[in-house]
């Protein structure tokens, strides 16, 4: 590790911190239904959309109505995207002349983008027409992110309101999140990306002659626009197969910086907006402190492991000072590869600028653990906030049990009913991840897809289902996942991970909204102090981490010890 490397990481945190308050305040205004400086332009568009969709903006929904709207919208998105992918060969904007996407891959991809996972079992530049990329995948990049924000808003209102029957209007929340937050920022960032050298064209490719005289086809397309929302919406689905390691998707150290800042900006600002909307900004800062601590630990773990390197290579004469550069782009180096890897898995982005499967065993384990913690650092836009709030509810419950008081969070009593919903949400991840991993590790057909034997092979399967169920979408590499088995089961894991988590959370929101909000007294456990921050970190590590420890022990941990004893995979 170097001072320069840590300086780069530190600067990243400074830039994001500077963005949190202005963006968070703006988002709080948008989601409270107040006028903003964009209302003059976007207000008529918003009302036209409501009129076209028959939405009564002033009519709010119960948590169940909100959940049904979310599911109906997602089902419609799945069907539309599936149809586009299956019919792309007869649809326009297909200059490459690609055929229909195979049925199992279309299912996997449609579910993947509707659930904000953006797992890519395909190579974008060799599979998807421009129409599929733009009208299919990029549209879902916007609306799936907006759906996540909408769920988080419902939970936020549950804490902010007292004795309320409703938690908001899903259609209004989704429309405002898309129109006022995601769309304007995506336009600005896309233009910045174009200025940094990302292609934005409807041409299919250019032909080039290499130095050896061979002909090469260099794929092009509307890359910058997709890259912008890919990061702002924490989607992660890249235009190219190798994602942000591709020089057209992430050409410079500066574009890499902007990538990471975009990932962190909205998701962090949303936590601040939560504090603003519940009337106590300190609550938002406390949750951001938890995020910052755990994210720094994650970045530090990867950075340390990759600069420590592989002693087997050193024994072969490779300069140990270089650490492990396998799977990394030289233009980013170890520090900014570590920062990208931790951020993209700490939240639910899933884009990659390096190959996580080529990291050292412990360096590869860190992104895996960050996904398994629930991607709450600060999480996918929306999904991270409501995931963190579930852990906060668990933390105050544990604290209440320890001191013998009725647990309370933001003036709302946390009782058995809320705990049942919280636990149903928390348990869905281990169920989907460990269940599907165990089955795949036993099926000869599924095992045949792994690229490496030994514990690394288990890590490949474990990572794939963690990424899918956690709605992350990053790939470990090595696993040939474009098979009917993996396309189908990973798709189901994505649906369970997204909605199996969100539905109990919405139920919890409905239950909490109905409670009367009491004012804090001397006996109230404060939830904005360093003590609570420490408690919450402990709960996250215990509840989120320990469930997966046995599987990790059989994968990356044993691989690390085998590396130290001279065996590598």
């Amino acid at each position: 590790m170097s001072l320069v490397g840590w300086g780069q990481i530190g600067l990243l945190f400074v830039v994001v911190l500077a963005l949190i308050k202005p963006l968070g305040l703006y988002m709080a205004r948008v989601f409270s239904g107040e006028r903003t400086w964009l209302s003059v332009v976007l207000g008529p568009v918003e009302h036209a959309l409501y009129a076209a969709g028959g939405v009564r903006a002033d009519r709010e929904q119960t948590w169940l109505g909100y959940a049904f709207a979310l599911l109906a919208f997602s089902a419609a998105g799945f069907l539309l995207l599936y149809a586009i992918l299956r019919l792309q060969h007869v649809l326009p904007l297909n200059p490459q002349g690609f055929g229909a996407v195979p049925a199992d891959l279309a299912f996997n991809t449609a579910v993947s983008f509707v659930t904000n996972t953006n797992w890519q079992a395909y190579g974008g530049e060799t599979t998807m027409s421009h129409l599929s990329q733009m009208a299919g995948l990029t549209v879902q990049n916007f609306v799936s992110a907006a759906s996540g924000i909408a769920i988080a808003l419902a939970v936020t209102r549950a804490f902010a309101r007292s004795a309320a029957e409703t938690v908001g209007n899903f259609w209004v929340d989704m429309t405002r999140a898309t129109l006022y937050v995601l769309l304007p920022l995506a336009v600005i960032v896309a233009l910045a990306f174009v200025a940094m050298g990302l292609p934005q064209t409807l041409d299919a490719s250019v032909a080039a002659t290499t130095l050896e005289g061979a002909n090469q086809t260099i794929a092009l397309g509307p890359v910058a626009s997709q890259e912008a929302i890919k990061q702002l919406g924490t989607n992660g689905g890249g235009f190219f197969n190798v994602n942000a390691a591709h020089p057209f998707e992430n050409p410079t150290a500066l574009s890499n910086y902007l990538n990471i800042v975009c990932m962190l900006s909205i998701s962090s600002a949303l936590v601040y907006a939560f504090g603003q909307m519940v009337g106590d900004r300190r609550q938002g800062w406390a949750l951001l402190a938890v995020t910052g601590v755990l994210l720094l630990i994650g970045i530090g773990a990867i950075y340390w492991a990759e600069t420590y390197g592989n002693p087997i290579l050193a024994s072969l004469g490779v300069d140990p000072a270089m650490g492990n550069m396998e799977g990394k782009e030289v233009r980013f180096g170890q520090a900014m590869t570590a920062a990208y890897a931790a951020v993209t898995t700490g939240l639910s982005d899933g884009g990659v600028n390096g190959m996580h499967g080529s990291f050292t065993a412990l360096g590869g384990m860190a992104p895996l653990v960050l996904i398994q913690l629930g991607e709450i650092l600060p999480g996918g836009v929306g999904s991270g906030l409501y995931g963190m709030l579930v852990f906060a509810v668990l933390a105050v419950f544990v604290a209440g049990l320890m001191v013998g008081r009725t647990p309370e969070f933001l003036g709302k009593k946390i009782e058995g009913r809320e705990m049942k919903f919280a636990m149903l949400a928390v348990l869905i991840l281990p169920l989907a991840i460990l269940g599907f991993t165990a089955v795949s590790a036993m099926l000869p057909g599924a095992v045949a897809s792994i690229g490496t034997g030994g514990p690394h092979g288990l890590s490949e399967i474990l990572y794939a289902y963690s990424s899918a169920a956690g709605n992350n979408g990053s790939a470990f590499g090595g696993l040939s996942a474009n098979t009917p088995w993996y396309n189908t089961t990973l798709g189901i894991a994505m649906l369970f991970g997204r909605f199996g988590y969100a539905l109990p959370v919405l139920a919890m929101a409905g239950s909490i909204a109905a409670k009367t909000r009491s004012t804090a007294t001397a006996g109230t456990f404060p939830t904005h102090t360093p003590l609570f921050v420490g408690l919450l970190i402990g709960i996250i590590l215990i509840m989120g981490g320990l469930q997966f420890f046995p599987a990790l022990a059989l994968g990356p941990i044993v691989e690390h010890f085998q590396m130290l004893s001279g065996q590598t995979f």
Partner: peptide, 30 residues
């Protein structure tokens, strides 16, 4: 254009989401 595989995968996706809607209804009774 629609073939058996399409019917299966559309049913799988839409059916899973419909199952989740039933799950939500069940949660409302807790």
């Amino acid at each position: 254009v629609f073939i058996l595989a399409d019917i299966i995968f559309i049913a799988l996706g839409a059916g899973t989401i419909a199952g989740l809607a039933l799950y939500a209804s069940g949660l409302a009774r807790i």
